[in-house]
Design a protein around this nucleic acid. Structure first.
Lengths: 356, 356
DNA sequence: GTGAAACATGGTACCGTTACCACATGAAGA
DNA sequence: TCTTCATGTGGTAACGGTACCATGTTTCAC
């Protein structure tokens, strides 16, 4: 059975003041560099702090100053590869600036999200990062009223009211199609994600933009998916049944691309050779499949780093433009999109690697 | 540029008291159910709270009562699949009990871990979960002195001083070997993880235990890896070069098993048919490879749920045994370990699925 | 009828900081 | 000499709760 020890009392600012022979005000000024402190006094305070191993109580500070050096990261699901990468970046940056990160899983349910906002607002959280898709104008207004800064991933509650970080989804889709065309694809299908997600929508638009002028293009080359493996798998099956002559698939995200890979595998179709596959996101998993997945990589880490830096700047009152920050995506060609040339190249590099 | 709005002042307990026509003490008693409150009084307090949309300030509560309803989860790296799954479970349970979760990435560096402890102890964190491998007796003693409860994943600072949750690693290794033998393997290698990790050590012991009586066994069938994909890949290459007749590999964790798969693939060896592979952990990724990976699955979610439930019980003073909680692992046979029989079974199920 | 126990409520000193104001000193400029 | 201002320090009321103590009223058993 657990028995709390307690007892050990931690030094307070009063203890420091007493030991240093000054007032708490002076110690406080020293700690916050918020006023005059004589050089000698400073030394004796420093000594007292060392001797007592004193560290300011952040809770008391929080109460007095309404600032807790804590930010909240609300995302759909931390166990989702994309978001755990993002979380890592956010925490890295936050801890550099002396902030602590609280996370919450919304499962894209508005109620859960609101619950986090409620709970955390009276914990004096300094700011929020929303990577969740259910964050709406109502929530934004509430936070604004409370004076709590926030930034959003992918989509803001409405343009211009908050910083939004996302990557160039439309442009990425165009790159994907171009790449598929480059390697020789002549009939490309697209598995698109849930259209309430701006990322999915933009990628679909980019795809349509790129292919509509081709005579092989028909809207039945579009197939809905759910941004998950299973959805990608089923969508691919439907798509291939409808258009057995497809030679390229652009999946709206990597997980669906993995599903597509599985589907082709089951159907006995060689992915990368008979049908090329290109995903979107650049999650770690794309390196694990075989063939490895070609993908349009979002700079996930950079996005996380940028978004938390933006938030911290807002919190600390630095000038921050409340606008859309669109980051570049990058094509990472791998074996799931082999052209005749790249095929031979890939094989050559394979030999080289074996020779090491 | 961001301009904090502030202004909107939140109702305090004093506002509630005034509106309800009672004293703050009475409201406080009502809120905490910590004393007598008349039924009528209760109603008017309830009314006032509703009208003012009052919610207690957790920071003030924290200062007064040294309890913040916040726990910290210190893990090596949130972007690691295993730990993000774990984090999900921890947060799920914690939020059920009204707790908020702070996370920190230690990268298995003791210094970072200590830094988190320092930072968080004066945030009046209620308790710690350490999933990090650098948590030592010194840290434990410090927390104990401070009266801050903690629990550990996999390994405690020393037996009996804290709750430790892990799974049956040794037993799992035995299961893995048995499975490989069952499907017909006659020469099995093992890629073991870093031996300062108790999980890696136990799995190695389990492996040795299971194979040492066979005449084909020789210590050169053991190969070190780093618990990551690259390490597993290289280890497999070394292993296969040394023993080209190996027909089964037990990798110390799933990531290394993925590496092994990649290595075999490069060498032109059909994983699952010529050489069987079994991993350990049960991370999501094992379903993504092809062939899909057989693995000894740890009950990751249950482990996370249990560990946070233990911590919360400790925090709330409920009786908790400070002991080792060992959870069962489970063999998940997949295509990377096909026996002749299972091979035919697998193919049959494949046809069935296609027929759907 | 009386004392004890249960019920009900209010006052206020903390919890550990910060922010503001008051005050003192010495140097510089008019 | 008298302001003015930079420097340096201390006192203390917040911040928003909780917890303890004091005070009063009922209720009820003996």
């Amino acid at each position: 059975m657990y028995v709390s020890q307690e007892g050990i009392d931690i030094a307070t600012i009063r203890d420091v003041a007493k030991l240093a022979g000054v007032s708490v005000s002076t110690v406080s000024r020293y700690l916050n560099k918020s006023g005059y402190v004589n050089a000698e006094t400073e030394q004796s305070i420093k000594g007292a702090i060392d001797k007592l191993n004193y560290a300011p109580n952040v809770v008391a500070r929080g109460l007095a100053g309404k600032k807790t050096n804590t930010i909240a990261l609300i995302l759909p699901d931390i166990s989702n590869l994309f978001f755990s990468d993002l979380a890592r970046a956010v925490e890295d940056v936050a801890s550099t600036y002396g902030y602590t990160v609280i996370f919450g899983n919304s499962d894209d349910q508005g109620i859960k999200e609101k619950r986090y906002i409620e709970t955390l607002k009276n914990k004096y959280i300094d700011g929020f990062i929303f990577a969740s898709n259910t964050f709406g104008p109502g929530d934004a207004e509430k936070l604004q009223k409370l004076g709590i800064p926030f930034v959003c991933l992918d989509r803001g509650p409405d343009e211009q009211t908050s910083g939004v970080v996302r990557s160039k989804n439309r442009e990425g889709a165009v790159m994907a199609v171009q790449h598929l065309l480059d390697i020789g694809c002549r009939k490309i299908g697209h598995i698109y994600g849930p259209q309430h997600l701006i990322t999915a929508k933009e990628r679909l638009i980019g795809f349509e933009q790129s292919v509509q002028s081709f005579d092989w293009y028909t809207p039945t080359l579009l197939e809905p998916g759910d941004f998950r493996i299973a959805g990608g798998l089923e969508a691919t099956e439907r798509l291939m049944r409808r258009h057995p002559d497809i030679d390229g698939i652009f999946a709206g995200n990597d997980l669906m691309a993995v599903g597509a890979l599985k589907a082709l595998n089951r159907m006995g179709i060689r992915a990368g050779e008979q049908v090329a596959i290109c995903g979107f996101d650049g999650i770690q998993t794309t390196e694990i499949t075989s063939p490895e997945l070609t993908t349009i990589a979002q700079p996930i880490y950079e996005m996380g780093a940028l978004i938390s830096r933006l938030l911290i700047k807002k919190i600390e009152g630095a000038p921050v433009e409340d606008r859309l920050y669109e980051l570049d995506v990058k094509l990472i060609p791998r074996d799931s999109t082999l052209s005749r040339e790249t095929l031979s190249l890939a094989q050559r590099s394979l030999y080289e690697e074996e020779g090491q």
